[in-house]
Amino acid sequence: MLSRTADSLFWMGRYTERAGNLARGMQVALRMSGLGSSLGGPEEGLLNEWHSLLVAAGAEPGYREHHAAVTAEAVIRWLALDARNPSSIAACIEAARGNGRAVRTALTVDMWEALNDTWREMRLLAPTAADADRLPGFLDWVRARAHLFNGAAADTMLRDEGWLFVHLGVMLERADNTARLLDSKHDALAGPGSEGAVAYAQWQALLRSVSALRSFQWLYHTRLRPGLVAEMLVVRPELPRSLVSCHGRVLHALEGIAEATGGRRGDPQRIAAEIQDRLAKGRMEDILARGLHDWLTAQINRNIELGRAIQALYLSG
């Protein structure tokens, strides 16, 4: 497979997953800001929700270039629609469709229709998507479209090299998002703010953002506790969006790509194996004792390193 084809498939998967993940993060911020308002919380606390989402999305530096202060309305528009933000939902959908169009013949009809229909509907929804009364429905729509694309790829794409690059992009992006979401709420999980009604609501919102609230009860049969929430999202392989689960599939995809390219292995396989081994052998007690924020920061940086290694070995040229 040509490196430019692999590159388009990889980034198509990443951008589609990123749009869905950003919608999930915005739903958490909306839920928490709504809870804060109902409890009469301070305005500063409500804005912290949006600021933490900016940081988690890696979108704060660009936002600061164009905005003097953090406001809910400005952050929502920046993350959802602003063309100046290359990681906004609208920009991700545009980029995913552009990458898919470049490799149209490598996609199934269902995959292309999922991408193209999403792009067309996005153009219709954009003028009012950030309005207060339409935003929740818009975010639900984005999540549903990401599910549709992933389902189309899973159900219709040949399990060949093309599938492996799409799946690799999705799983790498998902792992990065889980780590960033966790880090944005580390105080509610392992810091001085990990007790009380607001912290409990943050744990709930965090689990909802990865569709895991019911799964938590199924696995643990107990009330929410911060250590267990963190454990579920980091080291429980049963959860599809946990770090250990995502990185397991990243490693599996990379091994498949190596076999499909005549045994061409390198830094991607080495880094992915090290990450997976660290996660599989990790104990949540040790991670929390070290400091959840520091541990997650190292994990995010390692994920970035893995992405660069994949780009250098398979996607450049």
Rank of each mutant, 00 (worst) to 15 (best):
A175E: 02
A212I: 07
A190F: 13
K185H: 13
A298E: 15
A298V: 10
L9H: 06
E305V: 09
A197C: 03
A153R: 04
L228P: 07
E49R: 12
L46F: 07
D155R: 00
D140R: 00
A201D: 14
G40E: 05
D131R: 09
T16Q: 04
R225F: 11
N150D: 10
T16A: 12
L53D: 03
Y314T: 07
G20D: 00
R270M: 09
W141Y: 11
M26R: 01
W163K: 04
L181W: 05
V109L: 14
D7P: 03
A126N: 01
L306M: 04
G262E: 04
R123L: 09
Y220L: 13
R265P: 02
T108W: 03
F149H: 00
W50T: 10
G196W: 12
M12I: 00
G248S: 10
A190K: 08
W218F: 15
L315A: 06
Y15A: 02
Y200Q: 14
E238V: 15
V170A: 03
A102W: 02
E43D: 12
R143V: 00
W50R: 05
A298P: 05
V170R: 14
L181F: 15
G227W: 06
L164K: 10
A188Y: 11
R214L: 09
P226F: 11
G151S: 01
A205C: 11
V244T: 15
D277H: 13
G196H: 11
T16N: 05
V250L: 06
F138K: 01
S52A: 15
L2K: 03
T128L: 00
S211K: 09
Q27V: 05
S211W: 04
S3L: 07
V234P: 07
D286P: 06
E44P: 02
S88V: 01
A69T: 13
N99T: 02
A309D: 06
Y220T: 08
S316L: 09
V234N: 08
L224A: 12
H252G: 09
N303L: 09
M157S: 11
V55T: 13
A175G: 14
H186P: 03
V198N: 12
N301I: 05
A68Y: 06
R84N: 03
A57R: 04
S194E: 14
G62K: 04
P42A: 13
A190C: 14
E60Q: 13
I287D: 07
T118G: 01
D131F: 05
A106V: 04
L172Q: 13
